[in-house]
């Protein structure tokens, strides 16, 4: 029960992003898609778990004057190991995160938890704390990323560990006339006749649709590979990029959108947290 409370504490009362304002840089930088948000949270979880375990083990023998350099070297070693591991087994995530993967070293969540929790508590509690804090980070980052990806681009794009697109789901509907064109193109992709597809695309291009991306993709495709799942996915991606719904807010996918969405999420989370606390206090006063 007490262990569960430590985890819950990390998600709500000490949520690293919304309440403690630690490690804001990766939340802003890797929230452009849900895929990168999940990858970043997984990496932060691995690093935080290992650093909390090792620091709670060695904290007793470390002289307090040199503890910060010792912690930083431990964290840097763990991050190096994790980034080599991710590069080997999940290259898609490695390329999506770019330099932000290595910058976990200077992420204040890791050093903050090492200093304020792991160095003062037992190994088991530190593991629970790592799980709770990473869940809180995952929760915050995924909310921001989902809002930005869905409202900003209108679609959810999922990839596998290699970085290949596995599914594209459109959430925000297209305008009616665009929807007709989109459906016609997708059906034509699936049937698999290159010539009639090319005709269709040139016909729509003449009518003023910007289908340059699809035409570019088509040039790469030979008759042998045509109709396979990867090709259909690549074309679907191109089609999704060529069309945009009138209801989506492209600004949110831009850098400035990251600040905006995070600002509103922080306000919403803290507003809800305070409202619940006020209700609880009112109830307690009533029962008295």
């Amino acid at each position: 029960m007490k262990k569960l409370k430590i985890i819950l504490n990390g998600i709500i009362n000490e949520n690293p992003t919304f309440v403690l304002f630690l490690g804001m840089c990766p939340v802003l930088a890797t929230s452009s898609s849900i895929y990168s948000a999940i990858g970043m949270s997984a990496c932060v979880f691995l690093v935080l778990l290992m650093s909390n375990i090792s620091i709670s083990l060695i904290a007793k023998f470390t002289p307090s004057e040199i503890r910060i350099p010792v912690y930083i070297v431990i964290i840097a070693t763990i991050v190096t190991a994790v980034s080599l591991f991710v590069n080997a087994y999940a290259p898609g995530i490695y390329t999506t995160l770019g330099s932000y993967l290595q910058l976990i070293v200077v992420n204040c969540i890791i050093l903050g938890r090492a200093e304020s929790y792991a160095s003062k508590n037992s190994v088991v509690n530190s593991i629970m704390d790592a799980i709770g804090i990473s869940l809180g980070f995952f929760f915050a980052l995924t909310i921001v990323a989902a809002l930005r990806e869905i409202l900003g681009t209108g679609v959810i794009t999922m990839k596998d560990l290699e970085g290949n697109v596995t599914s594209i789901t459109r959430i925000i509907p297209l305008a009616k006339e665009d929807k007709v064109v989109y459906d016609a193109l997708i059906t034509e992709f699936k049937i698999g006749d290159v010539n009639s597809l090319k005709e269709l695309i040139s016909e729509y291009s003449n009518n003023g649709y910007n289908l340059s991306k699809i035409t570019k993709e088509l040039k790469v495709i030979t008759d042998e590979t045509y109709g396979t799942k990867e090709v259909v996915d690549a074309l679907k991606l191109a089609a999704n990029q060529s069309f945009s719904s009138p209801y989506e807010i492209g600004l949110l996918a831009q850098p400035s959108g990251a600040f905006l969405v995070l600002g509103f999420c922080v306000a919403g989370f803290n507003g809800a947290r305070k409202a619940i606390a006020n209700k609880k206090a009112a109830k307690a006063a009533e029962s008295k």
Partner: peptide
């Protein structure tokens, strides 16, 4: 921080 982030945007 919330209004600060929105202003930064």
């Amino acid at each position: 921080n919330s209004i600060a982030l929105i202003t930064t945007s």
